[in-house]
Design a protein around this nucleic acid. Structure first.
Lengths: 215, 215
DNA sequence: TCACTCATGTAATTGGTTACATGATTCC
DNA sequence: GGAATCATGTAACCAATTACATGAGTGA
């Protein structure tokens, strides 16, 4: 299972379920999501399988924390996963399904509105990632265009970690930019179709020169 | 649930579970996937809810077919879904998770290999979609750049359906192109990092001019 | 006092995958 | 005779979401 391996991956230093959830919200966010109610039992099972070990640690405020760390078997399992084939999930893109079937509706105005909204949320998400990138560039001297990390005061391991984190961020940026572009392309096409001359419902049959001119 | 609505969307003409599975393999494929063992119970439940009706139809070969069609309530429910907000799934991108944690490994050669393989499968998928686009351009006169559909002998409803199908295909193409570009960008950066002068493991502390020159 | 954060969990349900069962017809 | 396709389903399991339960400490 992927969540298991992600949790193992996050264990480069000891952490509790609550800590991990916070890290999910921060860095892991743009490619994975997990609820606390999923994290706690997952950690428990990993411990049963001997891939993690835990100890209780008293907390200054609130109840006792259960802090986990990797075992030897745990890091072996992580490495196996990391060196395996790239795992490409089959994606279920709900909004594409909606768009696909929107052809059944009377006119294109529903589609237009839909695409405008979609563009809005994609652009917002993109802005978030671009802001993170800008922040990083300031803080640790990442060169976006060349994707080079100017290590500065970082140790080699930290520098490598930053590099890998940064490439995943870049993927999000690439991906969202292309989605926004696709929204724009689609909106242009919708508008072109709305203003062009249309065939009547009872069509003349065969090829229609009125449509041929549309673009 | 999304699968329910997708099934409703596929019901513009009566179909059996088996028919629908075939359509999944063909057109719906690049944004959704469902097994027969998921489709059959889903259809059954939709019928119980009064959104579909079914009748047995004798088959020329093999067992009797159960053919479903939409009810009034079914198309109302579909329209509600189509006119609702664009539903953006939280994505769980397994290969990004792998890449993210690959910083823990000794050198970048594992990452390089990983990115090469990833690029390979992305490029293959892209080629498939581009081939479909080329086929459609030949068959029904779609103009890729302008995203205009030259309806030709199509009726208006068919023409609109083709338009909506085509936009979803375009999204796949945009998306995969940007992923391939991202892979290339990342591979360039990996190679630049591999050949650049590196800080020793015991680093000199503070800023390092040898790294500064890397790009 | 009330809301919020810290902190850990269980239970019920939904959505999806994998494995299994059955049997007719058609094509090589 | 054997593999492939047509056709329908059930059962067991795994992954993820939603809802619920509990309780201490902090700050307005």
């Amino acid at each position: 299972m992927s969540l298991d391996h992600i949790l193992l991956g996050m264990m480069h230093e000891p952490a509790s379920g609550y800590d991990l959830k916070r890290e999910f919200e921060q860095s892991v966010r743009h490619f994975w999501f997990a609820e606390l109610s999923q994290i706690y039992p997952a950690l428990k099972k990993l411990e049963e399988r001997g891939l993690l070990s835990s100890r209780p640690v008293p907390s200054s405020r609130g109840p006792e924390r259960r802090v986990f760390e990797t075992t030897g078997a745990g890091s072996e399992e992580l490495e196996r996963w990391l060196t395996s084939e790239p795992l490409i999930p089959k994606d279920r893109i709900t909004y594409l399904a909606q768009l696909f079937f929107m052809g059944e509706m009377e006119d294109l105005s529903a589609t237009e509105q839909f695409m405008e909204r979609l563009r809005g949320s994609m652009a917002t998400r993109l802005a978030v990632l671009e802001a993170i990138e800008a922040e990083w560039m300031g803080a640790i001297g990442i060169d976006g265009a060349a994707l080079a990390v100017d290590g500065g005061a970082l140790t080699e391991i930290e520098d490598d970690r930053v590099f890998h984190m940064y490439t995943t961020l870049r993927m999000g940026i690439h991906s969202l930019r292309s989605r926004v572009e696709w929204c724009d392309e689609t909106l242009r096409a919708i508008r072109a179709r709305q203003t062009r001359p249309r065939a009547s419902t009872e069509d003349e049959g065969g090829s229609n020169p009125a449509i041929e001119t549309a673009r």
